[in-house]
């Protein structure tokens, strides 16, 4: 067993565990976008940054790829880490504002503005789809193509892949594919109010009727969504 200090707490972990696994085991939540317990970590999204080392000589490392070491000092929620994390979330918001996962992250970490030029990409290059296709589905139909700012995810010669079995795992695991609900807000606005709110349908129906997970802050004070009333008529 390796002895480490996690946020001032003396902990013991098995050799070979990563800092992220250790923190999760001790109940400390670290946000991630490119991590999945069933896939090999690649440290692409950098959201799991933690500070290691003594305060005067500390550095930020990605917790999902950094292996536990004896006597390591880890701070998961220091000022430096939180600032770095908020900046990252802000940049992700600027890249993919249509993602529910990223909007939720922004709300959770109190990122209330975007200072960067707004883009509307549909990929954050986390590599989850590439890894699930190769490691879990054994298909290897998609890969990172190109390099640098031209990096993208595609199939062989951008053609319909013969290796793809249409299992849909890549879409299932994608953190950006799940779109946020498009309420009365602007497309590029920071939603920021998803947490701690009940679905508006609950007042009218016994169960939540929205086809989306409750991300309904934008519906508050507005008439119920069309889909809800249609379903009511049908039932």
């Amino acid at each position: 067993m390796l002895e480490m200090t996690l946020n001032g707490l003396e902990i013991q972990v098995e050799p070979g565990t990563t800092l992220l696994e250790a923190a999760n085991f001790y109940g400390i939540e670290i946000p991630t976008l490119c991590y999945d317990a069933g896939l090999s970590p690649i440290g692409a999204c950098r959201l799991c940054l933690v500070e290691i080392g003594s305060p005067d000589r500390s550095r930020l490392v990605s917790a999902c790829t950094f292996p536990a070491q004896k006597g390591l000092e880890i701070r998961t929620h220091s000022k430096r880490v939180i600032n770095a994390r908020k900046l990252l979330i802000e940049m992700y918001l600027a890249t993919c504002p249509s993602s529910k996962t990223i909007q939720d992250l922004a709300s959770k970490h109190h990122v209330t503005r975007v200072r960067f030029k707004q883009k509307h990409d549909d990929c954050i290059l986390c590599g989850l789809c590439v890894r699930i296709c190769e490691e879990q589905m054994q298909a290897k139909a998609i890969e990172f193509i190109g390099r640098g700012h031209e990096l993208r995810i595609s199939t062989f010669f951008d053609k319909k892949s013969e290796d793809c079995r249409h299992c849909g795992a890549c879409m299932y695991i994608c953190p950006v594919c799940q779109a946020r609900c498009q309420g009365p807000q602007e497309k590029d606005a920071v939603c920021n109010a998803c947490l701690n709110l009940e679905p508006p349908c609950l007042e009218e129906f016994e169960d939540a009727m929205c086809y989306m997970d409750p991300c309904v802050a934008c519906e508050q004070g507005h008439e119920p969504r069309k889909g809800c009333s249609q379903r009511k008529e049908g039932s």
Partner: peptide
Amino acid sequence: PLVDLYRVATF
């Protein structure tokens, strides 16, 4: 895998 070739060729 075919995509591996394409990945290296485009890199």
